[in-house]
Design a protein around this nucleic acid. Structure first.
Lengths: 153, 153
DNA sequence: CCGTTTGACTTCATGCTTGAACTCATGAAC
DNA sequence: GTTCATGAGTTCAAGCATGAAGTCAAACGG
């Protein structure tokens, strides 16, 4: 079964997408890493917790919201727990779930890191795009977030 | 100097971009990793070499083309060399540069991996987007590739 | 009840990535 | 010429990510 190759237009979208994927993580993570000692994924995790009701979420919901695997999240939250930013406990209503809750110290950390992140996002992305580009980007991302069925990975 | 926060429209572009960055690498890398033992960055590196004149490039050009750091590239190319996919030698015209050249065996490897990659790109990206989306994506990526000055990282 | 299944985590070994600190070739300054 | 400065590339240690295999709690079937 020969795979259908890409047309020129598709190829341009492809190269663009790949370069975004390879380039932006480093650019967006740099300031967070240097000045707050956080990875981008760390920041997104803390940020999602800080916006949740009572600043807590089930691990599996958090994994979904951060687009990460449960394995990855488990490791990250373990490190947070060791630094005192998060506490973990079984969900009282169903012991199969684990709840991760942001501590006051964890909240302080997000608040410290947020301006660094916003500034980096402006510098490397938002401020380089027109409003129409921004709408297109949001639309494109929404379409790609939907994962096709029949996929293992 | 307080950082300017994001408007709602900017925030949607931002969340979209972040989710792309966190989600797509894993999806695009899965098939390559499972069936060819390559990372996405590995594949892009081999692919760039295979398309270059005489299938060879200076390390620093290759780093630029793959959007990677020289450190990263050096490690990756060292592994390629050990597997016999690449040979390295100093540029005869200027000993400060190092040239990395794809071997026949390395070319075979790219040829083997290419259909896996194209299929994954179709499944997870291209085929989910309209032609207008594809044009927008290429345009957006082109704008973001331009790195702002005054940046360390 | 008791075994089985399901799904939510956790752990661990392995491999990759990163920044800091090197080495080395060349061109420039004196 | 000798010393410096520059920039390419490498190495190393530390930390992070991943998939496979494990644990454990609740639901389900008989």
């Amino acid at each position: 079964m020969p795979t259908k190759w890409l047309t020129d237009a598709e190829k341009e979208a492809w190269t663009g997408l790949i370069s975004l994927i390879l380039l932006l993580p480093g650019r967006l993570e740099g300031p967070l890493q240097r000045e707050a000692g956080l990875t981008l994924f760390d920041y997104m995790t803390l940020s999602q917790m800080s916006e949740a009701p009572d600043r807590r979420l089930r691990m599996s919901e958090l994994a979904f919201l951060t687009s990460g695997s449960l394995t990855r999240l488990s490791n990250v939250v373990k490190r947070f727990e060791q630094r005192g930013w998060v506490i973990k406990y079984p969900d009282p209503s169903d012991g199969r779930y684990t709840i991760a809750e942001l501590t006051a110290s964890g909240y302080d950390k997000v608040a410290e890191a947020a301006p660094l992140h916003v500034e980096a996002v402006r510098l490397h992305a938002i401020d380089l795009l027109s409003p129409a580009d921004q709408r297109a980007l949001a639309r494109i991302a929404a379409r790609l977030r939907v994962r096709p069925q029949d996929v293992r990975n």
